[in-house]
């Protein structure tokens, strides 16, 4: 059985230290001058050690949940898997190009939803013909047109839930070998959540691997069969969702 499982993501002892600009404690002009004069290590830059030596292997057809308290390094780890944040130490190996789907993925607020769909699909590397064919399908899936013609309005007029739904729909339109979802399922109403969970299951069936970061334990329970619990940048537990969630819930209530 082990031989038939094909790894899609191998994370090997990954450390991530990222630098934060404009995080100086003393933000006055005098403070800036003092830092330059004293030649302190990188004036306004502070370093955050977000992920500290994480290793695991994910396989084809797996849906992996990532849970942990706020600031435990879940989103950072996801970005590293997507190749968007280079690891400071260690390495991440992936099959194909993983796609990160986050609720704060950039969109152009001044443009209509429809134009954003086209732009987003092209940015994911979809060929032009396919984009044209899929645009309507994506808008229908997102359901933003359920209350009138919203897809031709600028995105700045959307509610945050509508924006998130459109973003999810765009990312889910492409078949990804590895799909990384950051909190997306937590947004949107119950109806859309159901639809997106179905879509995640579909993507998984297409021999992809899905990572899901969420604070909503129920959506992790519904979509993932394996869960990794991160705490302060270290893996605290890695195993079947039921066991990990039980331990996590115990940990959370004990605090």
């Amino acid at each position: 059985m082990a031989e038939t499982r094909i790894p899609t993501v191998v994370v090997d002892d990954v450390h991530i230290v990222y630098r934060v600009h404009g995080a100086a404690k003393d933000s006055s002009p005098l403070g800036a001058l003092r830092r330059i004069a004293s030649r302190g290590p990188s004036a306004t830059v502070r370093e955050v050690h977000a992920v500290k030596g994480v290793s695991f292997t994910a396989h084809e057809g797996e849906a992996v949940g990532l849970i942990g308290t706020n600031g435990s390094g879940k989103s950072t780890l996801l970005r590293a898997i997507a190749g968007l944040l280079p690891a400071t130490k260690g390495a991440v190996y992936t099959k194909g190009q993983p796609s990160l789907l986050g609720v704060n993925a950039a969109m152009m607020a001044d443009l209509s939803g429809e134009r954003n769909v086209v732009l987003g699909c092209l940015a994911m590397g979809m060929p032009k013909g396919e984009v044209r064919a899929k645009t309507q399908e994506i808008i229908d899936f997102s359901g933003i047109n359920e209350r009138g013609d919203f897809s031709s309005l600028p995105m700045r007029t959307y509610s945050s839930g509508m924006g998130a739904r459109l973003r999810f729909s765009i990312a889910a339109a492409k078949k990804h070998e590895v799909l990384l979802i950051d909190e997306a399922l937590a947004t949107g109403d119950a109806k859309f959540r159901k639809r997106s969970e179905d879509r995640v299951r579909e993507l998984r069936a297409g021999a992809g691997t899905v990572f899901l970061v969420s604070h909503s334990l129920s959506s992790v329970r519904d979509t993932c069969d394996r869960t990794i619990w991160l705490e302060s940048g270290v893996i605290r537990m890695d195993g079947p969702t039921d066991e990990v969630l039980a331990a996590y819930e115990e940990f959370s209530t004990a605090k």
Partner: peptide
């Protein structure tokens, strides 16, 4: 199977190379 590493003998880098995975970024 999820909990136990299916390829205990291989280092992660070798495992990745064997299945044609490429380093991210």
């Amino acid at each position: 199977a999820v909990v136990t590493e299916p390829y205990p003998a291989l280092a992660p880098a070798q495992l990745a190379a064997m299945h044609g995975l490429r380093a991210a970024g």
